[in-house]
Design a protein around this nucleic acid. Sequence first.
DNA 1: CCGGAATACTTGAGAGTTCAATTGTGTTCT
DNA 2: AGAACACAATTGAACTCTCAAGTATTCCGG
Lengths: 168, 168
Amino acid sequence: MADTRWLDEGEQRTWRTFLAAVHLLEGSLDRQLRRDSGLPHAYYQALAMLSEAPGGALTMTELAGLLRSSPSRLSHAAARLEEDGLIHRFKRLGDRRTTIAELTPRGLKVLREAAPGHVREVRRVLFDSLTREQVDQLREISEVMLGELDPEGREPRCPGSGGAGDRD
Amino acid sequence: MADTRWLDEGEQRTWRTFLAAVHLLEGSLDRQLRRDSGLPHAYYQALAMLSEAPGGALTMTELAGLLRSSPSRLSHAAARLEEDGLIHRFKRLGDRRTTIAELTPRGLKVLREAAPGHVREVRRVLFDSLTREQVDQLREISEVMLGELDPEGREPRCPGSGGAGDRD
DNA sequence: CCGGAATACTTGAGAGTTCAATTGTGTTCT
DNA sequence: AGAACACAATTGAACTCTCAAGTATTCCGG
């Protein structure tokens, strides 16, 4: 094991600032969504993905892929969302192993009501203070990271349009 | 309430890619550290901050500030770290309200052993794939975010040098 | 068409984070 | 000095996430 190449001055500053920013950003988003809609950010994202899928429905596996969530995490989330009546789960005839998650009218309503405040928050903590150039830079940097972390590369976006517009 | 300014194409792609990347990145770091040292990333960070503080000690409030952690979170973390013998807590004479957290020799050892693998992981998932320019861009972007999210602006870095070098 | 492997999802336990409430201590103002 | 306030830290409950197992179903090679 060769001796470690530590982070240099610039890298370390970047790394720590980045970690701090991300930590606060997630807290901020989560707090806002919980307060205004009762949903944690991750659950909101699930509803958002469903809303963009054709028919407002996806299999658990598809949804997990889009959210880059473990099956387990999604299962727990879906259980809660279903209990709250925001989605419902069912099986397709002829396939007893796949589960479909579908946005309920109530789920769509909650999503629609939460969306504006959420987008405002996203703008406030991120886009409002970044230049157009920085937004592009951040996308490229994120794509590089994602390439390293998720080589399979699930689709970054959702094709459909059965949903409710771009909810974040 | 004016009608919402939704994210445009570019912003949305940036936002989603960023979220996905960050989510995977945190998972990756946390998994690596837990596996190799038994510590979650947040706890590792606490040890790292202490190791850089003069005397390997900080008050809970100071440490919370550096980690951008709530007092509660830090308290729980400290309880666990103390139970594991990685830090210990005590009061200064003449001040019965402030608590000092101090790295133990064992804590320093654990940190030292965990550091190389952690830095390797940080390089692998981030710095290895970014250009020098992108690292600078990411720092600037993070600083902007941080400015918005933490206007008080705790010091981004630790002054001291009683510790064990730059452990991330 | 049978048996092993892969797939789809769920479950339960354990751990960390958050929020609200609490305790104890120092500070300040009159 | 005494009361009100602010500060430092902790606690417990609720919630989410992770990991490891477990169940059920489908696929596939011989």
